Simulated assay, not measured.
Amino acid sequence: MTPDSAAALDHLAQDPVIARLMAETPDPKVFNDYADDVYLALLESIVSQQISVKAADAIFTRFRLLFSDGYPHARDLLLKTTEELRSAGLSGQKIKYLQSVAEFSLVNPIDRAHLDPMTDEAIVQYLIPIKGVGRWTVEMLLMFVLDRPDVFPIDDLVIRQRMILAYPEQTNGLTGKTLYNALHQIADAWRPYRTTACRYLWRWKP
Protein backbone atom coordinates (compact mmCIF):
# COMPACT_ATOMS: atom_id res chain seq x y z
CA MET A 1 0.00 0.00 0.00
CA THR A 2 1.34 3.44 -0.91
CA PRO A 3 1.48 6.25 1.64
CA ASP A 4 -1.25 8.09 -0.29
CA SER A 5 -3.62 5.12 -0.19
CA ALA A 6 -2.97 4.60 3.50
CA ALA A 7 -3.74 8.26 4.11
CA ALA A 8 -6.91 7.93 2.03
CA LEU A 9 -8.15 4.94 4.01
CA ASP A 10 -7.36 6.59 7.33
CA HIS A 11 -9.24 9.72 6.30
CA LEU A 12 -12.25 7.88 4.88
CA ALA A 13 -12.50 5.69 7.99
CA GLN A 14 -13.52 8.81 9.94
CA ASP A 15 -16.91 8.43 8.22
CA PRO A 16 -18.47 5.48 10.09
CA VAL A 17 -20.58 4.48 7.09
CA ILE A 18 -17.61 4.35 4.74
CA ALA A 19 -15.54 2.65 7.43
CA ARG A 20 -18.15 -0.15 7.63
CA LEU A 21 -18.43 -0.34 3.87
CA MET A 22 -14.65 -0.64 3.47
CA ALA A 23 -14.53 -3.37 6.11
CA GLU A 24 -17.16 -5.34 4.18
CA THR A 25 -15.56 -4.84 0.77
CA PRO A 26 -12.36 -6.27 -0.75
CA ASP A 27 -9.80 -3.65 -1.71
CA PRO A 28 -10.75 -2.31 -5.14
CA LYS A 29 -8.33 -3.23 -7.87
CA VAL A 30 -6.96 -0.27 -9.78
CA PHE A 31 -6.77 -0.89 -13.49
CA ASN A 32 -5.16 1.37 -16.06
CA ASP A 33 -5.46 -0.49 -19.34
CA TYR A 34 -4.19 2.40 -21.42
CA ALA A 35 -0.84 3.21 -19.83
CA ASP A 36 -1.78 6.89 -19.59
CA ASP A 37 -2.95 6.99 -23.23
CA VAL A 38 -5.79 9.51 -22.98
CA TYR A 39 -6.55 9.42 -26.70
CA LEU A 40 -7.00 5.66 -26.80
CA ALA A 41 -9.03 5.71 -23.58
CA LEU A 42 -11.43 8.25 -25.10
CA LEU A 43 -11.89 6.10 -28.19
CA GLU A 44 -12.60 3.04 -26.04
CA SER A 45 -15.06 4.94 -23.86
CA ILE A 46 -17.08 5.93 -26.92
CA VAL A 47 -17.14 2.37 -28.25
CA SER A 48 -18.33 1.19 -24.82
CA GLN A 49 -21.28 3.56 -24.55
CA GLN A 50 -24.64 1.85 -23.94
CA ILE A 51 -23.46 -1.70 -24.71
CA SER A 52 -22.20 -4.58 -22.59
CA VAL A 53 -18.55 -4.90 -21.62
CA LYS A 54 -18.26 -8.10 -23.66
CA ALA A 55 -19.70 -6.51 -26.78
CA ALA A 56 -17.57 -3.38 -26.35
CA ASP A 57 -14.38 -5.43 -25.99
CA ALA A 58 -15.16 -7.37 -29.15
CA ILE A 59 -15.95 -4.26 -31.20
CA PHE A 60 -12.91 -2.34 -29.93
CA THR A 61 -10.66 -5.29 -30.78
CA ARG A 62 -12.07 -5.45 -34.32
CA PHE A 63 -11.75 -1.67 -34.59
CA ARG A 64 -8.05 -1.79 -33.71
CA LEU A 65 -7.46 -4.60 -36.17
CA LEU A 66 -8.45 -2.21 -38.95
CA PHE A 67 -5.07 -0.54 -38.50
CA SER A 68 -1.79 -2.10 -39.62
CA ASP A 69 -0.06 -1.67 -36.25
CA GLY A 70 -3.22 -2.17 -34.20
CA TYR A 71 -3.31 1.47 -33.16
CA PRO A 72 -5.92 3.93 -34.48
CA HIS A 73 -3.67 6.94 -35.04
CA ALA A 74 -5.81 10.02 -35.61
CA ARG A 75 -4.85 10.63 -39.24
CA ASP A 76 -5.26 6.95 -40.10
CA LEU A 77 -8.66 6.86 -38.39
CA LEU A 78 -9.88 9.84 -40.38
CA LEU A 79 -8.85 8.14 -43.62
CA LYS A 80 -11.04 5.12 -42.92
CA THR A 81 -14.34 4.98 -44.78
CA THR A 82 -17.66 4.64 -43.01
CA GLU A 83 -18.00 1.16 -44.49
CA GLU A 84 -14.62 0.07 -43.10
CA LEU A 85 -15.49 1.35 -39.64
CA ARG A 86 -18.94 -0.19 -39.75
CA SER A 87 -17.32 -3.55 -40.45
CA ALA A 88 -16.00 -3.49 -36.86
CA GLY A 89 -19.55 -3.25 -35.55
CA LEU A 90 -19.66 0.50 -35.00
CA SER A 91 -22.86 2.52 -35.42
CA GLY A 92 -22.93 5.60 -37.58
CA GLN A 93 -23.19 7.84 -34.53
CA LYS A 94 -20.22 6.23 -32.80
CA ILE A 95 -18.17 6.56 -35.99
CA LYS A 96 -18.82 10.32 -35.93
CA TYR A 97 -17.83 10.46 -32.27
CA LEU A 98 -14.59 8.55 -32.89
CA GLN A 99 -13.77 10.89 -35.76
CA SER A 100 -14.47 13.83 -33.46
CA VAL A 101 -11.88 12.55 -30.96
CA ALA A 102 -9.35 12.14 -33.79
CA GLU A 103 -10.03 15.62 -35.17
CA PHE A 104 -9.77 17.19 -31.72
CA SER A 105 -6.47 15.42 -30.96
CA LEU A 106 -4.85 16.74 -34.14
CA VAL A 107 -5.46 20.32 -33.04
CA ASN A 108 -5.48 20.09 -29.24
CA PRO A 109 -2.91 18.14 -27.21
CA ILE A 110 -4.44 15.49 -24.94
CA ASP A 111 -1.30 13.84 -23.60
CA ARG A 112 -0.39 13.64 -19.91
CA ALA A 113 2.22 16.39 -20.24
CA HIS A 114 -0.51 18.81 -21.30
CA LEU A 115 -3.30 17.61 -19.00
CA ASP A 116 -1.43 16.93 -15.76
CA PRO A 117 -0.94 20.62 -14.81
CA MET A 118 -4.68 21.28 -15.29
CA THR A 119 -7.32 21.05 -12.58
CA ASP A 120 -9.98 18.34 -12.78
CA GLU A 121 -12.66 20.83 -13.80
CA ALA A 122 -10.39 22.44 -16.39
CA ILE A 123 -9.87 19.02 -17.99
CA VAL A 124 -13.64 18.44 -18.03
CA GLN A 125 -14.22 21.75 -19.80
CA TYR A 126 -11.31 21.12 -22.17
CA LEU A 127 -12.57 17.74 -23.38
CA ILE A 128 -16.38 17.97 -23.38
CA PRO A 129 -16.48 19.96 -26.64
CA ILE A 130 -15.61 16.62 -28.31
CA LYS A 131 -18.80 15.08 -29.71
CA GLY A 132 -19.78 12.02 -27.70
CA VAL A 133 -17.68 13.01 -24.67
CA GLY A 134 -19.64 14.21 -21.64
CA ARG A 135 -18.76 15.01 -18.05
CA TRP A 136 -19.16 11.39 -16.89
CA THR A 137 -16.76 10.18 -19.60
CA VAL A 138 -14.13 12.71 -18.57
CA GLU A 139 -14.60 11.87 -14.89
CA MET A 140 -13.92 8.20 -15.64
CA LEU A 141 -10.80 9.31 -17.48
CA LEU A 142 -9.73 11.40 -14.49
CA MET A 143 -10.22 8.44 -12.14
CA PHE A 144 -8.89 5.53 -14.18
CA VAL A 145 -6.33 7.02 -16.57
CA LEU A 146 -5.11 10.25 -14.98
CA ASP A 147 -5.24 8.87 -11.42
CA ARG A 148 -6.88 11.95 -9.93
CA PRO A 149 -7.60 11.33 -6.22
CA ASP A 150 -10.64 13.51 -5.58
CA VAL A 151 -13.23 12.84 -8.29
CA PHE A 152 -16.92 12.45 -7.42
CA PRO A 153 -18.91 11.22 -10.46
CA ILE A 154 -22.38 12.00 -9.15
CA ASP A 155 -23.92 11.33 -12.56
CA ASP A 156 -22.93 7.68 -12.25
CA LEU A 157 -26.13 5.75 -11.52
CA VAL A 158 -24.41 3.04 -9.45
CA ILE A 159 -22.69 5.62 -7.24
CA ARG A 160 -26.01 7.34 -6.54
CA GLN A 161 -27.83 4.06 -5.86
CA ARG A 162 -25.13 2.80 -3.49
CA MET A 163 -24.99 6.08 -1.59
CA ILE A 164 -28.77 6.06 -1.15
CA LEU A 165 -28.52 2.54 0.28
CA ALA A 166 -25.56 3.40 2.50
CA TYR A 167 -26.99 6.69 3.81
CA PRO A 168 -30.76 6.15 4.08
CA GLU A 169 -31.30 8.74 6.80
CA GLN A 170 -29.74 11.53 4.76
CA THR A 171 -31.34 10.57 1.44
CA ASN A 172 -34.74 9.07 2.27
CA GLY A 173 -37.45 10.44 0.00
CA LEU A 174 -35.18 12.94 -1.74
CA THR A 175 -35.22 13.37 -5.51
CA GLY A 176 -33.79 15.63 -8.17
CA LYS A 177 -31.64 18.57 -7.15
CA THR A 178 -32.37 18.03 -3.44
CA LEU A 179 -30.95 14.51 -3.66
CA TYR A 180 -27.90 15.70 -5.58
CA ASN A 181 -27.24 18.36 -2.95
CA ALA A 182 -27.48 15.77 -0.17
CA LEU A 183 -25.09 13.40 -1.95
CA HIS A 184 -22.59 16.20 -2.51
CA GLN A 185 -22.80 17.09 1.17
CA ILE A 186 -22.13 13.47 2.17
CA ALA A 187 -19.20 13.21 -0.24
CA ASP A 188 -17.66 16.47 0.96
CA ALA A 189 -16.55 14.59 4.09
CA TRP A 190 -14.46 12.30 1.87
CA ARG A 191 -12.35 15.09 0.37
CA PRO A 192 -9.59 14.95 -0.81
CA TYR A 193 -10.03 11.21 -1.45
CA ARG A 194 -13.43 10.93 -3.08
CA THR A 195 -12.02 8.73 -5.86
CA THR A 196 -11.09 6.03 -3.35
CA ALA A 197 -14.51 6.22 -1.69
CA CYS A 198 -16.21 5.78 -5.05
CA ARG A 199 -14.03 2.79 -5.90
CA TYR A 200 -15.32 1.11 -2.75
CA LEU A 201 -18.90 2.09 -3.52
CA TRP A 202 -18.65 0.46 -6.96
CA ARG A 203 -17.30 -2.74 -5.48
CA TRP A 204 -19.53 -2.83 -2.38
CA LYS A 205 -22.31 -5.42 -2.47
CA PRO A 206 -25.21 -4.15 -0.32
Results as ranks from 00 to 15, higher is better:
residue 71 Y to Q: 04
residue 71 Y to A: 07
residue 71 Y to L: 05
residue 72 P to R: 06
residue 73 H to P: 05
residue 73 H to G: 12
residue 73 H to T: 07
residue 75 R to L: 14
residue 76 D to L: 15
residue 79 L to G: 14
residue 80 K to V: 06
residue 83 E to N: 04
residue 84 E to L: 02
residue 85 L to N: 07
residue 85 L to E: 10
residue 86 R to I: 07
residue 86 R to S: 06
residue 90 L to Y: 03
residue 91 S to D: 10
residue 92 G to E: 04
residue 93 Q to W: 04
residue 94 K to I: 09
residue 96 K to R: 13
residue 97 Y to A: 06
residue 97 Y to G: 02
residue 97 Y to N: 00
residue 98 L to H: 11
residue 98 L to W: 13
residue 99 Q to C: 12
residue 99 Q to M: 10
residue 100 S to W: 11
residue 100 S to I: 09
residue 101 V to I: 14
residue 101 V to F: 11
residue 101 V to S: 09
residue 104 F to R: 09
residue 105 S to R: 14
residue 107 V to M: 10
residue 107 V to A: 11
residue 108 N to M: 12
residue 110 I to Y: 12
residue 111 D to N: 15
residue 113 A to K: 09
residue 115 L to I: 04
residue 116 D to K: 13
residue 117 P to R: 00
residue 119 T to S: 15
residue 120 D to W: 03
residue 120 D to N: 13
residue 123 I to A: 05
residue 123 I to G: 00
residue 123 I to Y: 02
residue 124 V to S: 07
residue 125 Q to R: 15
residue 125 Q to E: 14
residue 126 Y to R: 15
residue 126 Y to T: 08
residue 127 L to S: 12
residue 127 L to D: 10
residue 130 I to K: 08
residue 132 G to H: 06
residue 132 G to R: 13
residue 134 G to F: 02
residue 134 G to K: 03
residue 135 R to N: 14
residue 136 W to M: 03
residue 136 W to N: 01
residue 139 E to V: 07
residue 141 L to I: 13
residue 144 F to I: 11
residue 144 F to Q: 04
residue 153 P to F: 02
residue 153 P to K: 01
residue 155 D to Y: 01
residue 155 D to F: 00
residue 156 D to K: 00
residue 162 R to P: 00
residue 162 R to W: 02
residue 163 M to Q: 01
residue 163 M to S: 00
residue 164 I to Y: 05
residue 164 I to F: 04
residue 165 L to I: 01
residue 167 Y to S: 05
residue 167 Y to D: 05
residue 168 P to V: 02
residue 169 E to H: 10
residue 173 G to W: 03
residue 173 G to M: 05
residue 174 L to W: 07
residue 176 G to P: 11
residue 177 K to D: 13
residue 178 T to K: 15
residue 178 T to I: 12
residue 180 Y to H: 15
residue 180 Y to E: 13
residue 181 N to C: 11
residue 181 N to T: 14
residue 184 H to Q: 11
residue 188 D to Q: 13
residue 188 D to G: 05
